[in-house]
């Protein structure tokens, strides 16, 4: 029993650290030359990985932990609100889509990416103003492309990793 708990805690810690690391790599190598604020969201891949394995509690906890920690490490309180809102809502959206058998990893990932960006635009709309709506189509496209890339990466992850993560 004790070893089970220890195993769980270490898995949570490992995945949170991995998500943080991916996020940090993206912070260091920004894709801003495509459009401001564009991110691939590899760290969201960890969350997607857990969702497809139906580990919803772990997905939500690790995502919130990742966003809070990276917020304290390299973000402003303002951008923390942005990423926390978008992160939680897109996670819930992916969990909902995972209830349907007909969707593949890419579909769930694309929904996560687009919902994430739509929520960010909505938050921006209420804080900055209406002008940001023009930006929505580009962020939608970005969400689709990033979602496809992350979905593909997660699909590889799902097929390469062994059963160790099933115990989370």
């Amino acid at each position: 029993m004790k070893t089970m708990v220890a195993k769980k805690v270490s898995l949570y810690g490992f995945l949170t650290a991995a998500a943080l690391l991916f996020g940090y790599v993206e912070y260091l190598v920004p894709l801003n030359f495509i459009a401001p604020g564009i991110k691939l969201g590899i760290s969201n891949g960890i969350v997607l990985f857990l969702i497809i394995k139906s580990k919803y509690k772990a997905a939500i906890i690790i995502n919130i932990a990742r966003i809070l920690l990276s917020g304290f490490l390299f973000a402003t309180p303002f951008s923390l609100i942005f990423s926390l809102t978008a992160g939680v809502i897109s996670t819930v959206a992916m969990i909902l889509l995972n209830q349907f058998k007909g969707f593949g990893v890419v579909g769930i990932s694309v929904l996560g990416g687009t919902v994430h960006n739509i929520v960010q635009i909505c938050v921006a709309y209420f804080t900055v103003g209406g002008g940001v709506v023009f930006y929505l189509p580009f962020l939608l496209f970005a969400g689709i492309l990033a979602g496809m890339a992350v979905g593909f990466l997660v699909w590889i992850m799902l097929n390469k990793t062994n059963k160790i993560f099933d115990e989370i």
Binding site: K53, G104, V105, V106, G107, V110, F152, L158
Partner: peptide, 21 residues
């Protein structure tokens, strides 16, 4: 793990988002 990489529903979803944009 029996979820596929891409399904027709995924493609439909992507097409819908593209139309929306």
């Amino acid at each position: 793990m029996n979820r596929k990489l891409v399904t027709w529903l995924d493609i439909l979803l992507i097409v819908l988002f593209v139309i929306l944009s």
